[in-house]
Each structure stands twice: as structure tokens, then as C-alpha cells.
């Protein structure tokens, strides 16, 4: 059976003929839409590398059937920078060295964005650590990640971006 789905990915409509209902949002983003920034670390919701925003919420795209996401607005790591201008969180991750190998980084940044939009992290490092604990970093750049979320959040607040 072929399912026709349509996704708004980073603001762009993508009409996709889904020949296989088994495809996850993660695999559709990577293999069909061609956005490979979103990473597969465990494929089972156990690491957070595949985190994207769906309708503004952070989720594990590996545990979402693409078919079930028909009509959703999806934001991936590729949708954050505006041209050469990095999103404040992206800049903060570089500045705070919030990564080493970089494989979990797109998921970390999308998770951080989701966390900030949830409005619950404040600037309390302990709440940020807890809120970011669904994103495993085997290089263990956790201190930099926490610092980056604080810095990025501040920069977003300064520009009014966290309200979006």
C-alpha cells in the first residue's frame, strides 16, 4: 500500500509517496527528504540523537511512524540557521564546546530548543541537566552542553526568540 503524506519540513512542504508504512519519521527525513543532519543513534528512543521538533515539540523521530505524522510541521537541525547566521543555540554549542564527536549534537540542539520552548528550564543548571538527560552524549560533553543551553537561552531571550 502506498500512503501519501505531506510534511512541512523547515517551512517547506514535502509531499511524499510512502511505499512502506514501516518508515519512521527519522528514516523518511534522512532517506527521502535528504536531510541527514538528524542522526540515528539507537532507533529506539533510548539516546535522543534523532530529536526533532514536531509541531513545536521535541520528540524522538525514530519512534514516530512517518505515516502518523502526516500534516505535521517538522523542524530539523537544518532549519535553524538563517543563511550564514547561526541560531543562538548553535553558536553557543560551539562557544561552550558542547560536543566532541558531534554525532549527538543535532539532537542535543533540537532538544535544547524544545526544552527552552517548553519554558521550564529557566536558567537553573540542574533543571537543564535533567531536561537534557534524554540526549546521551557518549563523549560526555555534558558540562559544555549545559553551559550552551544557558548561553543560547540567554541570547534567545535577548532577541525575543524563545517566545516564537
Amino acid at each position: 500500500m502506498t500512503l501519501s503524506i505531506s510534511l512541512i519540513v523547515n517551512g517547506e512542504q514535502k509531499d511524499i509517496a510512502l511505499e512502506d508504512p514501516r518508515a519512521t519519521l527519522l528514516d523518511v527525513l534522512r532517506d527521502r527528504v535528504g536531510l541527514t543532519g538528524t542522526k540515528k543513534g539507537c532507533d529506539r528512543g533510548q539516546c535522543g540523537a534523532c530529536t526533532v521538533l514536531v509541531d513545536g515539540r521535541r520528540i524522538n523521530s525514530c519512534l514516530a511512524l512517518a505515516a502518523s505524522q502526516d500534516g505535521a510541521e517538522v523542524t530539523t537541525i537544518e532549519g535553524l540557521a538563517t543563511g550564514d547566521d547561526l541560531h543562538p543555540l548553535q553558536a553557543a554549542f560551539i562557544e561552550a564546546d558542547g560536543f566532541q564527536c558531534g554525532y549527538c549534537t543535532p539532537g542535543q540542539i533540537m532538544s535544547a530548543l524544545g526544552l527552552i520552548r517548553e519554558g521550564l528550564a529557566d536558567n537553573d543548571p540542574e533543571r537543564i541537566r535533567e531536561g537534557m538527560s534524554g540526549n546521551i552524549c557518549r563523549c560526555a560533553a555534558y558540562q559544555g552542553i549545559t553551559e550552551a543551553v544557558i548561553k543560547g537561552h540567554k541570547a534567545m531571550t535577548d532577541t525575543g526568540e524563545s517566545q516564537i
Partner: peptide, 15 residues
């Protein structure tokens, strides 16, 4: 800071 940082935070680093 990392010279590969830009690629890694924008999702363009190719694994």
C-alpha cells in the same frame, strides 16, 4: 573553538 564546529552544529558534517 572547533574548526569543524560549524558543520557539526548545522547538521552538515557528513558521517
Amino acid at each position: 573553538t572547533r574548526r569543524d564546529g560549524l558543520a557539526k552544529v548545522t547538521g552538515t558534517a557528513t558521517y
